[in-house]
Write a protein that binds this DNA or RNA. Structure first.
Lengths: 326, 326
DNA sequence: TTGTAGGCGTTATCAT
DNA sequence: ATGATAACGCCTACAA
């Protein structure tokens, strides 16, 4: 690997001049600039980013820490963030963590390598030494969709309003008795929205109207027997699911019992997964609104890094995407 | 940020000794080691990875270059690779590229920052200056599922055998007239397998039995009218699709026309997407076999980096995952 | 407009 | 077992 000195020698100038050319600084005769560029080309010189970072502090890297149970949504957001930053000359350094402790460790591990961080957090406590450290060192960062409120710049997804709105929609369309099927993790906002919706529509709530199940498609399949029992005992005519995967798993099981959807039963998911518009019947779902989360992160973080602006927290809403299933 | 010198002073030793402790080197009295560790803890010292990389050349980073049209499969593989390497103390540096030129540029950009690379390539030519550069500099790398054969360590997915086997399966189950629906990109192997299958089963081929369409679910929907026309003119009773998304889009359109699947028509996809087992009917599909691609990459690349072993190319097979749709 | 030289924080050679 | 010191490759204050 050639160094800046090799280039300097080759071009017959000093390293200082090479550095000037490489960093687009003024005070270089264009003839000299040409000569340097030619030498760079010939030798195949590439500045060592580590040496550069060591000296200047600029690393041109965005750090992303994500929890292990990363949803498709998270992966897509990471992809978008990565692509946007690529246009500005940043690469993305990614580390997955499988627990809160690992998350703290991952933050500590990648922080010295990057100019700013995006944290897809599962932190269960609002007290995080790692985040505090970032804050104290003035390193720009933003936390995405944390399960608890946090005293640092964050993006929140207001799931509650989506479920509330979904309940309202169903009731106003004449659905009388509703059921909520949730996974164990991240269910509280959904439950809160469900309850709020019922209350606003003056519908009574009974505790057997909330069913808990496992994660993903299989969770939907597994909960089906339970759902069928409740369906018979009570006159359930609408179900809200934790997400589209649960909904699809449940849908298949219900169709096997020849339950007509949406005629006999309305079904609503959450997330607007890519398949949801194409299954049979197309799935009505609750989805995040208000623009792209990844794009917002990009703008905020980039400005914070390059211009020192403060990162603003923001809450993204959720709303119904109407399709045939409800 | 405290430096190694601060730690040395604090512990009353030299920087060399601190370095020994930090890198688990021998020749340090355990009493001294304790003292150093205590100082590290107290000062909250973290070694600067840039300085370390500058001096030692070890960066503890794996680079990943992926093409812009990254499939779910690619994202999942990236996730798996990232998690595996995280256990060995490596983070993953990711850059997306939207063209062959950008791909070359991305490789050049991240190479100086990493110990090894994984390249999810769309390179259309087997001649790549960037890959040649990696090879010449002895930087371990592996190319994943390139569209063309490459003279460097690569992972290939043998789609051809999967389509061939699918044809055989359908014919042996009494399906007489088969159709292939493909996207424009990466269709040649699928077509080759389809033709080979027909030939081996002594089935004639007519050129109108291959339909081209757009990408993803919508591609499946869009091709439906064309499929329906062929369906009526010829006695088609089996369709192979480019992937599960195409299959699902097409499935919905066919069901709208009350075509019974699998009774009247067998449908087969490719990829075994996460939703495929849960749609109605569950989708028979062709999937990659032979273990996890991400795990193989991890093993090969890690050994190459840490022990200098050569990376071995490998071809992963594909096989039928039987479900109800065919 | 151009060059000299010191230092960023670490590792590693060599001496003790 | 431990320490002084010279790099690693780059940036930049200062000098010319």
């Amino acid at each position: 690997m050639p160094t800046i000195e090799d280039v300097a020698r080759h071009a017959g100038v000093s390293t200082r001049t090479v550095s000037r050319v490489l960093n687009d600084r003024p005070n270089v005769r264009s003839e000299v600039r040409e000569r340097v560029l030619a030498a760079v080309e010939q030798l195949g010189y590439r500045p060592d980013p580590n040496a550069r970072a060591l000296k200047s502090g600029r690393k041109q890297i965005i750090g992303i820490v994500a929890n292990a149970v990363s949803s498709d949504t998270t992966l897509r957001r990471i992809e978008i963030i990565s692509k946007l930053f690529a246009h500005s000359g940043y690469a993305v350094l990614m580390q997955f963590a499988e627990s809160s402790e690992m998350e703290e460790a991952a933050i500590n591990a990648i922080t010295p390598r990057c100019d700013g961080l995006v944290i897809f957090s599962n932190l269960h406590s609002s007290h995080s030494p790692a985040l505090l450290m970032l804050h104290n060192h003035r390193i720009p960062f933003i936390v995405v969709d944390p399960p608890v409120d946090i005293a640092f710049p964050s993006i929140y997804i207001d799931r509650r309003s989506g479920y509330r709105e979904a309940v309202r929609y169903l009731v106003q369309r004449g659905r009388q008795e509703l059921l909520l099927v949730v996974e164990s993790f991240r269910s509280s906002e959904r439950i809160a929205g469900f309850l709020e919706g019922l209350e606003r529509e003056n519908r009574p709530f009974r505790s057997n109207r909330i069913l808990h199940t496992g994660k993903g498609f299989q969770g939907g399949v597994d909960v089906a027997p339970l759902v069928l029992r409740v369906l018979q005992e009570e006159q359930i005519d609408g179900i809200l699911c934790h997400n589209d995967k649960i909904a699809l798993g449940l849908l298949g099981a219900l169709q096997k019992e020849h339950i007509q959807i949406p005629e006999a039963l309305a079904l609503i998911g959450f997330d607007d997964d890519n398949f949801s518009a194409y299954i049979n019947p197309p799935l009505t779902t609750i989805a995040q609104t208000g623009g792209d989360v990844g794009a917002y992160i990009y703008e905020q973080l980039k400005n914070a890094i390059e211009y020192g602006t403060a990162i603003e927290s923001r809450t993204f809403g959720t709303g119904l995407v109407l399709r045939a299933s409800a």
